[in-house]
Design a protein around this nucleic acid. Structure first.
Length: 397
DNA sequence: TCTGGGGTCCTAGGACCC
DNA sequence: TCTGGGGTCCTAGGACCC
């Protein structure tokens, strides 16, 4: 019997910050925006003894001006109704006294690497799902089946806490789909064990949105058909779901509602694309702000090129992404004859793609993406040689 | 109070080839 | 004048996730 775990770090970014600023424990804190310099200045003012900075010296959400969003909120802040992806301006209304800390991805990545190392030393089959989440295959780990996986989950929780001071929640189930749902059951610091036989009692009463893969759009459509819980979904016939949601998605919905998921835990994967994008402080006009836009555009290309080079990839398809003041998104692609990681080549291709985009409205966001990746050290895919000077004949097959 | 940045996968039409 | 069917690549958009 397969036993799969899903591990989710508790309020990860915020918890990492609380390690540096233990004086903020228990207080409403949100991570987001970007005032790195103020933060550094604050630290310097206290001789970089971060834990000695008085609480009152930290910036508050009140009076925040800008387009930032919350990436993580402490549980104390969540009690005020603020949460991930919420605009900081809105959060400031709900909880003006919450403390605001800037994001420090480099620091979170360091802690991410450390907790994942702890896991793979105990259970080597681990799938990375971002900085703060992983799936772990318990099936073949010695003791991985004891109490449905609870014993091993406890060991992993304890080992991560000892190595990092961070807490996490773990769900163990027959597959990834159910494990992902289970890890949410007892947050924070929770462990939940789900068996196949628990489907009706533990899964079916949940709203459909709890299924990883049912988002706001699909949920709205399901509700339009009177389907609110996973149990409602499971009650529908497979052909009915296929008829209304398409062949692939309909069949997947049916399987998901019945707790069926055969996806393996994948330990390695190759990137498909790399991108950089930026939201401007104010919406920019293609003509009036041409110089500023051009400079940002070039910088984005240089950043993507640097990312590709650092990680050892080249890409064939260059794309631009525009978000207008009305939030509509437009993308344009341009494929190159040969893959590259050269900033100038990328900039030229991105420029050709951008030329084909409508530029009437003001721009809120500009992005550059490179897809069709291959390893830079891989033998170059042979570019098709020019055809010999013979006429193509019909019916060559 | 307007809503970040970095990804993956799917669909669908058209080009082009055999 | 009407008659095929794959397969793959390219492009654009969209849903979804962390």
């Amino acid at each position: 019997m397969r036993r799969i775990a899903h591990l989710d770090m508790d309020a990860f970014y915020a918890s990492v910050e609380l390690l540096r600023y233990p004086q903020l424990k228990g207080l409403p804190v949100v991570i987001g925006g970007g005032r790195r310099q103020e933060d550094d200045a604050l630290a310097a003012a206290y001789g970089n003894e971060l834990d000695r900075i008085p609480v009152d010296a930290f910036p508050r959400l009140k009076g925040y001006v800008g387009r930032g969003v919350i990436t993580t909120a402490t549980y104390a802040a969540r009690a005020f109704g603020v949460g991930s992806a919420m605009g900081l301006m809105k959060a400031a209304k709900l909880c003006p006294d919450a403390l605001l800390l800037p994001v420090d991805f480099a620091e979170y990545r360091r802690f991410s690497r450390r907790f994942k190392e702890v896991i793979t030393e105990i259970a080597p089959l681990m799938e990375d799902r971002g900085v703060d989440e992983v799936y772990i295959d318990f099936t073949e780990v010695p003791g991985g089946q004891r109490e449905g996986g609870r014993v091993l989950a406890r060991l992993i929780q304890k080992s991560i806490f000892e190595a990092t001071g961070l807490t996490c929640s773990i769900g163990v189930a027959p597959n990834k789909l159910l494990a992902k749902m289970a890890s949410e059951f007892n947050k924070p610091q929770g462990i939940s064990i789900v068996y196949e036989a628990d489907l009706q009692a533990k899964i079916w009463p949940l709203p459909c949105r709890k299924i990883n893969g049912i988002g706001p759009k699909a949920d709205e459509k399901l509700q339009g058909h009177g389907i609110v819980t996973i149990g409602d979904l499971a009650a529908r016939e497979r052909p009915w779901l296929i008829e209304h949601f398409g062949k692939a998605y309909g069949a997947w919905l049916f399987d998901a509602a019945h707790g069926r998921d055969e996806r393996p835990v994948v330990t390695e994967s190759e990137p498909v694309s790399m991108s950089r994008e930026t939201t401007f402080d104010r919406d920019l006009h293609a003509v009036r702000d041409k110089a500023e836009l051009g400079a940002v555009f070039t910088r984005l290309c240089e950043q993507v090129a640097a990312d590709l080079q650092r990680k050892g990839y080249v890409g064939k398809t260059v794309g631009v992404k525009l978000r207008f003041d009305d939030f509509m998104i437009v993308t344009r692609d341009h494929s190159l004859p040969a893959p590259t990681a050269d900033a100038t080549t990328l900039r030229r291709a991105a420029g050709l793609a951008l030329k084909r985009a409508p530029l009437q409205r003001r721009l809120r966001l500009l992005g550059v993406r490179v897809g069709g990746l291959s390893r830079a050290d891989a033998p170059p895919e042979s570019v098709p040689a020019p055809e010999p000077a013979t006429l193509p004949l019909f019916g060559d097959d």
